[in-house]
Design a protein around this nucleic acid. Sequence first.
DNA 1: GCACTGTGTGCACAGGCGTACTCTGGCTGC
DNA 2: GCAGCCAGAGTACGCCTGTGCACACAGTGC
Lengths: 215, 215
Amino acid sequence: MLREIAHETQTRAERKERTRQRLLDVTLRLVADRSLASISLREVAREAGIVPTAFYRHYASMDALGVDLVDDAMRPLRQMIRDARRGRAARGDIIADTVAVLAKQVREHPDQFWFLTRERYGGVAAVRRAIATELRLFTSELTIDLARLTAGYEWSTDDLEMVAALMVTAMLATVVDLLESDARHPEDVAALLDNAERQLRLITLGMGQWRSKPS
Amino acid sequence: MLREIAHETQTRAERKERTRQRLLDVTLRLVADRSLASISLREVAREAGIVPTAFYRHYASMDALGVDLVDDAMRPLRQMIRDARRGRAARGDIIADTVAVLAKQVREHPDQFWFLTRERYGGVAAVRRAIATELRLFTSELTIDLARLTAGYEWSTDDLEMVAALMVTAMLATVVDLLESDARHPEDVAALLDNAERQLRLITLGMGQWRSKPS
DNA sequence: GCACTGTGTGCACAGGCGTACTCTGGCTGC
DNA sequence: GCAGCCAGAGTACGCCTGTGCACACAGTGC
């Protein structure tokens, strides 16, 4: 305790957490333009500044790190939902707000979204499952919101889930479009967002005409 | 020319084409549950029954083979479009027919669809580009069909493309659902198809209410 | 029939990989 | 203050990778 001379003394736990975070950061950067399966443990360790065998002090395998990375990458998405709900409370244009929030998140965390997009159907089963689970949660939250909005209109749960799934699908497709254009043609981001808005509006127009079959 | 004793004599071109096809088949099988980037040239050569260096007689790299594989895998998809159009001519229920044809293709060529799904955002840039190009063609064909169906209703091209993209997105999502369920829960394929049909119907209902902004 | 072409072989090499092992040195709990 | 813990270092192993090169030998064109 006497000497915190140089070397900025830290607790052991702090140093470990730091290294762990560095592993996650480095992997995320590497995954920005290649698939997780093609990245080696040694490469991650090298970039993180530790020796390969030290990797095992943190994860049993790259797959395990990948699963952890899904959690990390989902954080901005969860933030997004919260923001979108707040926007909704503010009684602005729900669709425009939602799309804007999505665009903001994608712009601020492109690597995370690339990772999720690529690994959603990628080669690592554990990661795939982790992402699928998160997306299912996402859809079911939207289903609940839709149920609230359609209260009194006799929508079956099944139909609500169908609509929620379609909306999520459309949004995910928009995410990919944004990622691809952000890199090369930043000028047509606006057109993409307009497109996404129109798709969602079309869906809500369809909802206005929909009649659930009595179950 | 005298002796076609044993060894079933073949022209050189035939033998080459055969090996090439074997390379494609083998790769498709390997890609059914791993990403293309994680498959080695040696592995493909081994499975195809040739020595690694002979691989180069056919492709300059695995990436090049991947691009070729996209063409192969797209063939059933193109067949699908043709079938769907024929069904349309038969004046049945367009949506139900289209979904049924899609389900049939997915059931008959799961490996191809897995490959396309996985590599659509996968690690190999050339393959990604090839798939994107094919899908763009797919969407623009659908746009043309929609233009025919909405003739006289003042739809802008932009809006037609927006709807076509949404429909294609929904169908692609259905493909993935089918692939995932076919493997483990064949009993709820029917529910998935019903879901897809309802999504498309919802979209067409929305179209009925849509008014394009005058451009 | 003979020279040519080109698919496929066999061998070799250097380099990257995951991981098992022993060791070190500083934070940590008593 | 001291024993012990544990993140990380260092070394080593066997395996697999892409690819270069010389060679075999069967169909091909004249």
